[in-house]
Simulated assay, not measured.
Amino acid sequence: MVDVSLTYLVLAHNSTERVARLVDQLLAQDLSGRVIIHFDKKSGEAPYRWLCERYHSQARCYILPQRAYCGWGQWSLVDATLRMLRHAQSTCKTDYYYLMSEYCYPTQSLSALKSYLVANKGTNFIECEDSRWIKGGIREDRYLYRHFLNKRNYPRLHRWTYKVQKWLGLKRKVPQDLTIRFGSQWWCLTQEAVAYVLEQEPIYRSFFKWVWIPDECFLQTFIYKKEFKNLSKPLTYYTFSSTGEAATFSTVSGSYPGFFFLRKLK
């Protein structure tokens, strides 16, 4: 039987119970799959050690020891993702890499997911849309101005620094060879796509480091730039409110045709 190898990348932030709920399913359902976890450094050492102890004997699960302090809407989320991808590249490359958060949960069996990937091998499952994809708030100004601060921690100061830049005319130039594209950060990418992104990242890091919510445009822009032939919608079901807030679900119920994970499950 033809198969694909798969690495699941888990961005985890604060709940060891949610992380274990997801990771246990990944390891049990995909007996050849690998799991790499980045656990937000700001959540402290005790929960991190708990996860390390829980999975220390599981050879297919690796928890990154070098962790980033993650801030919503900031480069640190991309940094954490890149750390997982680099570790995967240096240890055991696989056909596909599937990024998810601790809030994700399977809606179908992972054998169904792998069969789907076999049938669509070579396809990258990621959105590469123009700025109309954004539901609320600023659009092009996400990248045309520098966003230094965490908006949730410093909402007024975050907005003030943005307005001052506009008033002073400090608009940035987009690198000439880039067309910024947007989409959900919960993608599933081929080895070829991941290798290309990691090759490009050092060149453009200084530009993306101060973009607002770079996880929704960083990889999307490079996949668009490379012009991969086969692109398709993400395999994780999500929905936003009219103001751009991610909806939450209390249970995995109902049918989600064409999707294999749900986000976000409480």
Rank of each mutant, 00 (worst) to 15 (best):
I223R: 02
I126K: 00
C104R: 08
T91E: 12
R263H: 15
Y116H: 13
K209E: 15
A20G: 08
H38T: 15
R54N: 02
T179R: 13
Y256E: 09
G33F: 00
N153R: 14
Y55H: 12
G73C: 08
V164N: 05
A112N: 10
L85R: 02
F261E: 02
Y143I: 10
C52E: 12
G136Y: 03
I126D: 01
A20C: 11
I37R: 00
Y8E: 11
W210K: 03
Y256L: 10
S206W: 12
L198R: 02
S111H: 06
R86K: 10
D3M: 13
V35W: 01
C104S: 09
F260Y: 15
W186L: 01
N150H: 13
T243L: 01
Q185L: 09
S232Y: 06
Q176L: 12
L85K: 00
C217S: 10
P155I: 06
L6A: 04
A247M: 07
T190Y: 00
G244L: 04
Y238K: 10
Q74E: 12
D141I: 02
T248Q: 14
K233H: 04
P65I: 06
P234M: 04
S109V: 06
A46L: 12
P214Y: 05
A59W: 11
L85Y: 03
N120K: 03
E17N: 06
Q191G: 03
K266I: 10
V211Y: 04
P234N: 13
Y116Q: 13
I37N: 01
F228D: 08
I138V: 10
Q191D: 15
T7L: 05
I36K: 11
R139H: 01
A59F: 15
S184R: 01
S250A: 13
P257G: 11
R132W: 05
S232P: 00
Y103Q: 13
A12L: 07
L22F: 04
T107H: 00
